[in-house]
Amino acid sequence: MNEILLTILAGVPITLLLTAGALVVGVLGGIPLVAARQSRAAILRLPARATIELLRGIPPIVWLFIIFFGLGTYVRLDAMSAAAIGLGLISCAYLAEIYRGGLAAIAKGQWEASAALGMPRTATLTRVIGPQVGRVCIPAAASYAIGLLKDTSVAFTIGVTEILYWANDQSRETSDAFWPFVLAAVVYIVMTIPCAWAARALDASLRKRVAR
């Protein structure tokens, strides 16, 4: 039992790395995507909407197969990178939508005050609106991140050596189809619950500093 657990724990760094990688791609990539999505120019807005729908409308596992097996036939791509790219792109779409909700939540007066003060557009976005949107988005982004942490388990299907990979490995090794997976479940829950607590605490402390 101990040995099974230790083997499964070996997958934790990979799971965390994959989650963090995809999240970084999503948090950054979501910004230009929401910018295009909210653009006045249809030439940006429509492709951005299409991209978001496409990324969200196809299951992660299918994306990973397309990238790893499909693109993999043309480009050398290891499983970890393929998973990070796939989950990262999907995260871009989800975070863009979270940002969009955040933008809608910012009081119109913040834009008006910035305009009336004659603040340049970049300063308005980076110093006034952006920081507030960031704060509004924390709860939604945090629950997305927790979902993402769980979703990294699909990377097992393309051979990334994360938690589920080792659980499956141990299941075959020990011919036990129960305990390795239950232990994997415990490992996941031990990681996700504190994340949720932390997000809630962070949100509560930042909530007051946003005008909605």
């Binding site: 009081a107 007066g109 913040q110 008006e112 005050a113 009336a116 003060l117 006034v128 920081p131 507030q132 704060r135 007051k208 500093r209 946003v210 005008a211």
Partner: peptide, 13 residues
């Protein structure tokens, strides 16, 4: 031109 609004519109952050 400076402007003062009914709802203040200070930057809360």
């Amino acid at each position: 031109v400076g402007m003062v609004f009914q709802s203040f519109n200070l930057f809360p952050h």
